[in-house]
Design a protein around this nucleic acid. Structure first.
Lengths: 198, 198
DNA sequence: AAAATATGTTACTATCGGGTAACTTTATAA
DNA sequence: TTATAAAGTTACCCGATAGTAACATATTTT
C-alpha cells in the first residue's frame, strides 16, 4: 500500500510536470503552434506517453483549469470567512490573487479559458469563471452595503478588476524587472484610490 | 481616371469587408480554428480570391493592426495637442479609446497582437503597441509633473490601464446589456477614483 | 518465479488546411 | 472591338500533427 501510494504520487508529479511544461510552451508559442511532440520532448518522453496522463491535447487545458480554479476558490473561501468590511475582503482578495495568477499553469488557464473546441467543456469553463466572478461581485456588494466601497455597478467593476488582474498574466514574469511586491502595491493603489492627484 | 479610382475604392471596400468578417470569425472561433475557406465563404468567394487582397493568413492580422494603430495614434495626436492637465488628457484618452477598441477589427488586433509566426512581424507588432503605450506613459508623466495625477510608477499604471481597457474587448458587445455610456462612466470612475467608499 | 499491470516506444494513419498553378470570366482602356 | 489587366474559379499539392495500434520493458503483486 505504501509503494502503490508512492506510484500514485509519482504519477501525479509527472502530470504536474506535463501541465507546467505545456503551460509554459502554450504561453510562449501559443496553443496551436505547440505540438504534443514538443511537449513530450520537454519531459524526454514520446508523444504516446502523454496519453497515459491526459485524454487529449484539450484535456491539458481542462486540467490546468481544475488546478487553478481549485486554488482560487480555496483562497476565496479563506478571504470571505473573515468578519471584515467588503473593502478589506476585496483588498485581501487582490493581494492573494496576484501570486496565484502569476503562476505558469494559472496564466495558461487564463489565456485559454472558455476556448475549448468541445462545446460542453467550453461551457463548463466559462461557468467555472462566472462562479468566481460572482463570488467577487458578492464581495463588492457587501462592501457597497457596509459603505466601504463606493456605490457602483458591481458587475462592471468585477469584470474590470479581473481584466486588469488577468492582464498581468500576459506580461508579468516573476524574473522580470518588476518586483511582485511593487506590482501588488501599485495594483492595490490603483484599484482603491484611482489615479487622481488629490 | 474617375473609373479607375472607383475600382481602387471597390478594392479597398472589399478588403475592409474581409478584415471585418475575418476579425469577427477570429474572435468567435479563434484564429486557428477559422480556415481561409471559412473566411472566403463569408464573402461568397473562394479561397484563392482572398490572395488577391491579402498576402497570406497572417497578413490579415497585420492589416487589422495597421488600421487600428492608425486610428489610435490619430486619436492620441488629437488628445495630446490640447493644452490641458495630464489628468484631463488621460481622461480624454480613455473616453475616446473605448469606442475605438470595441470595434471588431480592433478587438481582433488586441487579441492577436504580437502573436504572428513571422518573428519580424511579431517584433514590429509589439513595437507598435509599445509606441502607443509610451505615449500614454508620457501623458501620465505630464500629469504627475503638474500634480493632476498622483505619484506612481507610470509604466505599471499604463500597462494596468491598457489591460483593463483591452480586457473590455473580450466581453463587451455593442448590442449587449451594458450601454456604452454606462461602461465609459464606470471605467472612468474606477480609474480616476478607485473603489474606495469615501 | 509468474502473472498482471503500469509505463513506455516505434511506426503508422488520417485529416485538415495553407498555399499555388493553370485556367475562365469580367471589366477597363486604347 | 480588341488587347490588357483585374477578379475569380477549379483542382491540386504537401507539410504538419492529433491520435492509434502493436509491440517492448519495467514494476508490483500473488
Amino acid at each position: 500500500m505504501q509503494k502503490s501510494l508512492s506510484r500514485e504520487q509519482k504519477r501525479q508529479q509527472k502530470l504536474d510536470v506535463i501541465l507546467r511544461n505545456a503551460s509554459k510552451a502554450f504561453m510562449e508559442r501559443g496553443y496551436y503552434k505547440t505540438s504534443l511532440d514538443d511537449i513530450a520532448s520537454m519531459q524526454n518522453v514520446t508523444k504516446p506517453t502523454l496519453y497515459y496522463y491526459i485524454k487529449n491535447k484539450e484535456d491539458i487545458l481542462v486540467k490546468c483549469e481544475e488546478v487553478t480554479c481549485g486554488r482560487i476558490n480555496a483562497m476565496l473561501d479563506d478571504v470571505m470567512k473573515d468578519d471584515v468590511s467588503g473593502y478589506e475582503m476585496l483588498y485581501n482578495f487582490i493581494m492573494k490573487y496576484i501570486p496565484i495568477i502569476t503562476d505558469d499553469v494559472a496564466r495558461c488557464h487564463v489565456k485559454h479559458r472558455g476556448q475549448m473546441e468541445d462545446p460542453d467543456l467550453a461551457k463548463k469553463s466559462i461557468h467555472n469563471h462566472k462562479d468566481i466572478e460572482n463570488r467577487v461581485r458578492e464581495i463588492i456588494r457587501i462592501g457597497i452595503k457596509d459603505g466601504s466601497i463606493r456605490d457602483c455597478n458591481s458587475t462592471i467593476l468585477a469584470i474590470l478588476l479581473f481584466d486588469s488582474l488577468n492582464g498581468l498574466t500576459s506580461w508579468y514574469k516573476s524574473d522580470g524587472p518588476v518586483k511582485e511586491n511593487e506590482l501588488i502595491e501599485e495594483v492595490l493603489k490603483l484599484v482603491t484610490q484611482g489615479v487622481s492627484g488629490v
